[in-house]
Design a protein around this nucleic acid. Structure first.
Lengths: 181, 181
DNA sequence: GCCTATGCCCGAATAAAATTCGGCAACAGG
DNA sequence: CCTGTTGCCGAATTTTATTCGGGCATAGGC
C-alpha cells in the first residue's frame, strides 16, 4: 500500500472550502485539457479514479471550476479581427445600454477598470466594418464620452485562468520596500 | 479511398474546411458547455449522435475547436486581482524577455496592438504586491520603456470566443458610408 | 489513553457515455 | 446512366463516468 501521508489535509475550516495542492494540480490539468479521462488523470495525480472524481465533483460544487467549455479558433469561425476598445463614460459604472452591447457574441469581455479610462472591452469581429458598427452602437449611448480602439496585430498568449501561482512574485520586490517598524 | 491531391492544397497546407450553420450551432453549444453528452446535444441539433460525433471530430481535426478546457474562478483559486498592463516598448514586436514573462501562470494574455501602446497584457495575481513584482520583472527588460496598469474593479462579461456572429453589425453603418460607384 | 465522528481514500460493480461499423440516400461529375 | 463521394443513421461495441461499501488515519471529547 502506497498510502501517502495525509499532510495535505487542512485544519477544519468551516467557512472556507479547502483547496489544497492536489486540487490545484487537478485544476491545472483540467484547464489544459478537460476532455481527459479520469483514469489517465488519476494516474498522473496519484489518486484512484473514484477519489479523483469526488474531488472534481466538489471543485464544481464549490464553484472553483465554473464550467467546462470548448475553445474556438476566432479566425476559423469567421472572426479574424480582435480588438480592445477603451471606453470613457460620463458618470459611474456600467449602464443598461452598455450591458446590452455586452451581450453581443462579438463582445468577449467588459471590465470596469481604474485609470484614465472607465471600461475595457474585448471584441472579436469578422471585419473592420463590423468593428465600426460596434463603435457606432457605443456612441449611440449618451453616457459614452470617448473610445479608443486597439486592434490586435498578433496574439502571443491567450488562455483562461491558470491554476498555478508563482510564489516568489511579490517577495522579490518586498525587500527594501516594507519599512521596518 | 482518401487520396490527397496536391492541387487541393491551399497555401498553408490546409484545404478550406467547410463550416456551415450546423457546425456553428454545435460550436456555440460546446462553448457554453463542453461536458454535455452527445446524446442530448444531438437531440437539440437535430442529428443522430453518430453524425454529431463525426462533425465534432472534424471540427477538432480542422482546428476550429482548439481544445476543451475548464474555466476556473480566479478569486477562488487565490488570484482575486485582475489587471491590464499596457506596455510601451522600444523597437518592434515581442522580445524573448517578454515571451518569458508571458509564460508565467499569472499572465493570461499578451497581444501586440495598434495605437499608442505596443503590448497589452492581461494578468491575474494574488495581491497587489504580486502585481508590483510583475511590473518589476517588466522593467528589468531594457526594451520596456513604460507601462500603464489598469486594475479591474468589476467584471461584467468574460467568456471565450463565441461561435455566433451578429450579421447586421457592419451593415447599419454601411448605409451612407460606402460611396456609390 | 480510549473512543468515536469525520474526512479521505480505495477496489469493484454498475450505469452511461463515447466510438465504431455497415449500410442507405442524395448529389455531382463524367 | 453510371459512379465516386459525402453525410447521415441505427445498432453494436468499447471505453468511461459514477456509485457503493468499507478501510484507515486524524482530531477532539471524555
Amino acid at each position: 500500500m502506497k498510502q501517502e501521508k495525509t499532510d495535505n489535509l487542512q485544519p477544519g475550516g468551516v467557512s472556507a472550502p479547502r483547496f489544497d495542492a492536489i486540487d490545484r494540480k487537478i485544476s491545472a490539468a483540467l484547464v489544459k485539457d478537460a476532455g481527459r479521462s479520469f483514469a489517465s488523470l488519476s494516474e498522473e495525480i496519484g489518486l484512484s479514479a473514484a477519489a479523483l472524481h469526488e474531488r472534481v465533483k466538489r471543485l464544481r460544487a464549490n464553484g472553483v471550476i465554473r464550467r467546462t467549455q470548448a475553445a474556438l479558433d476566432g479566425a476559423k469561425i469567421g472572426k479574424p479581427l480582435l480588438a480592445y476598445i477603451h471606453v470613457t463614460t460620463a458618470g459611474w459604472g456600467i449602464t443598461p445600454g452598455l450591458m446590452k452591447i455586452a451581450q453581443l457574441p462579438e463582445v468577449e469581455e467588459v471590465q470596469t477598470v481604474t485609470g484614465d479610462i472607465s471600461v475595457i472591452m474585448k471584441v472579436r469581429v469578422s471585419h473592420s466594418l463590423a468593428l465600426q458598427g460596434l463603435l457606432a452602437r457605443l456612441y449611440k449611448l449618451k453616457e459614452v464620452r470617448a473610445t479608443s480602439s486597439h486592434v490586435v496585430l498578433s496574439t502571443h498568449q491567450e488562455r483562461p485562468v491558470q491554476a498555478e501561482i508563482t510564489e516568489d512574485l511579490g517577495s522579490e520586490v518586498a525587500v527594501g520596500i516594507i519599512p521596518e517598524v
